[in-house]
Amino acid sequence: MSSKRELIISKIRDGVVIDHIPTGRALLVLRLLGISGREGFRVALVMNVESRKLGTKDIVKIEGRELTKDELNLVALVAPTATVNIIRDYEVVSKFKVAIPDVIEGLLKCKNPRCITNQQREPVRSRFRVLSREPLKLVCDYCGTIHELNDIERYFGLT
C-alpha cells in the first residue's frame, strides 16, 4: 500500500508537474490549460498539501501531453506562485517559475460588450497585452479596455 507521501510525489515518466499552486486553484489551472480530463491522458491533482512557502498548496501533474512554455505561462494569471517542472524519462529536464506572457491570445474575454471580440459571428479571437505586471493590468488589443486582477478573477469565477 502506498503511503500518503508516495501519493504526492509519485513520479511521472513524461509530462509536467505544476507545483506551488495556491490552495483551491488546481482545477482552475487545468481549465485554463484547456484540460477537461476527457482527453485520455493521465492527470493527477493533489490539493491542500503542506507547503513551506505557502502554508498549503495544490499540485497538478499531467502525463503524456506536451505543453509549451507559452501555454504554461498562462497559469500565472490564476496561480502567480506556481512553478513548472518538465519531466522526461522520470527526470526534471527544466524548471521555471510561471510568468504572465506579454500577449495573451484567445483565452480571456474582453469585458467591454461593445468590443469586436465579443461578436459571436465574427472570426476573431481575444487578444490582450500586458500593460503592467505589478499590479496586473492587461489591455484589450482591439478596444483598449484595461482589465485588472479583479476582472480576470471574475472571469475565472474567483470572486
Binding site: 468590443c115 469586436i116 465574427e122 488589443d141 483598449g144
Partner: peptide
C-alpha cells in the same frame, strides 16, 4: 463602425 476595435479587425 459602432463596435470598438472593428477597424483593427
Amino acid at each position: 463602425h459602432s463596435l470598438e476595435g472593428a477597424a483593427k479587425f
